[in-house]
Simulated scan of single mutants.
Amino acid sequence: MHSPQQQQPPQWQQPYQQAPTPPRRRMSPLKWSLIAAGIVVLLVAGLVLASTVAAKVAGSLPSASATPGKSAQPPATVPAYEVVKTRRNGVDLLVPKATVSSAKTVIRDWIKRNADDRDYLVVTVVRSADAKTYVCEGEYVADERTSKIKTGGRITADEYPTTAMNCPDPK
């Protein structure tokens, strides 16, 4: 009645069979050319960036914080200053015997050292920590778009970044 069937071992006892590997598809020469061109473009961009950074560090490029449209001024000595108040978009700097000229120099120096990637700063120079009026105030804007957003377009320049100075000097 029943024919004797050959029993198969349970699945966990069967030998492992690896699935056949599909044949490798060859990449067309056009794809290889595009990949090589992309690598070359990335290398060139990296070299240009590296040389620009190296030149900036070496000081061979003009400073981005120079006031545009003005002739080169001899470097002024920067008076000692102290940060007395920090705000989200700037600081108050204490220069006890500040003049308009020294206040502008201090503002330019602080912005040069601290602007980095910030797009808007307000730097104020005061003669005392509790002063109600300021000697000079500089507004730094990195680009025209920032000027329109932060100042309503009040600050304009031929080149950006720029710093607008307001020095009522209340003595």
Rank of each mutant, 00 (worst) to 15 (best):
H2Y: 11
S3H: 12
Q5N: 13
Q7G: 04
Q7C: 09
Q8F: 03
Q8S: 13
P9Q: 09
P10T: 01
Q11G: 08
Q14S: 04
P15Y: 03
P20S: 10
T21F: 10
P22L: 09
L30N: 12
I35T: 13
G38V: 10
V41I: 13
A45Y: 09
G46C: 06
G46Y: 04
V48T: 14
S51F: 07
V53T: 15
V53E: 12
A54V: 09
A54N: 10
A58W: 03
A58M: 11
G59N: 07
L61A: 07
P62I: 08
S63M: 06
S63A: 12
T67F: 00
S71K: 14
S71P: 12
A80H: 14
A80G: 10
A80W: 01
A80S: 11
T86K: 13
T86V: 13
R87Y: 08
R87A: 12
N89F: 10
V91N: 05
L93N: 04
V95N: 01
P96Q: 02
K97M: 10
T99F: 03
V100D: 09
S101M: 06
S102P: 12
V106I: 05
I107N: 00
R108A: 11
D109K: 14
D109Y: 06
W110G: 08
W110I: 05
R113K: 14
N114Q: 08
D116P: 03
D117M: 12
R118C: 01
V122N: 04
V123A: 09
S128V: 06
S128H: 08
K132P: 00
Y140L: 07
Y140G: 02
R145D: 07
S147C: 06
K148V: 06
I149N: 05
K150S: 08
K150W: 03
K150V: 09
K150I: 06
G153R: 03
G153D: 04
I155P: 01
D158Q: 07
E159S: 12
Y160T: 11
Y160L: 12
Y160K: 10
Y160C: 07
T163A: 02
T163H: 05
T163M: 03
A164I: 00
M165P: 04
C167I: 04
P168T: 06
P168F: 01
P170A: 09
K171G: 15
